[in-house]
Amino acid sequence: MKEEADLAAQTEDATRRDFLVVAASAFAAVGGAATLWPLIQQMNPDASTQAMASTEIDVAPIKEGQAITVMWRGKPVFIRHRTKTEIDAAKSVDPSSLPDSSARNGALPESAPASDANRTKAGKEQWLVMVGICTHLGCIPKGQGLSDVKGDYNGWFCVCHGSHYDTAGRIRRGPAPRNLDVPAYSFLSDTMIKIG
């Protein structure tokens, strides 16, 4: 008899109990999810890696026609002092006719057309700064050394899978889907560049 009474009491209590069960479960679930967050987040670049996020380079020693490779965030960055011919060749191309018509400039929106002006700084057209990693599968294109193969467009050539880049680092032919990325950078002085 007593048990029956208890059962009846429990049924009356049902709503309150349901609420407690739901609330307890929800609290526990939030705790579980919150615990996951640090476990996932720890995989992202740590403070020491983040600290290497920017770098400064003096480009004065680079003579016209030469190029240097500097490391930035563990990636090679190509800095080329372009010749007049190279700049003119890059400027003469209609951006809309390119395989990738976006400037891929970290400082500009995605929709900016891939004109030579959008891939360099105004008044500093002779300097081309970009991440030297092929946008296909991450190889480093050839073309930095004076005697390197430079591909059919006299810029860079990726020997891995045969992507040709022009003198503004834009993909012209081959499997690479995008132009070489131009990182966000600025001129601190006439010849001092800060990348990142």
């Binding site: 992202n44 670049p45 740590d46 890696t49 965030r73 563990g74 995605e110």
Partner: peptide
């Protein structure tokens, strides 16, 4: 190509840096 930036975020997360590095090797 589906969500701009998502792929790059995932790759950085996998690498634990901005390129394959010692951190990547360790994990």
């Amino acid at each position: 190509a589906i969500v701009p930036g998502l792929g790059t975020k995932i790759v950085t997360w996998l690498w634990g840096g901005f390129s394959v590095s010692s951190v990547t090797l360790n994990r």
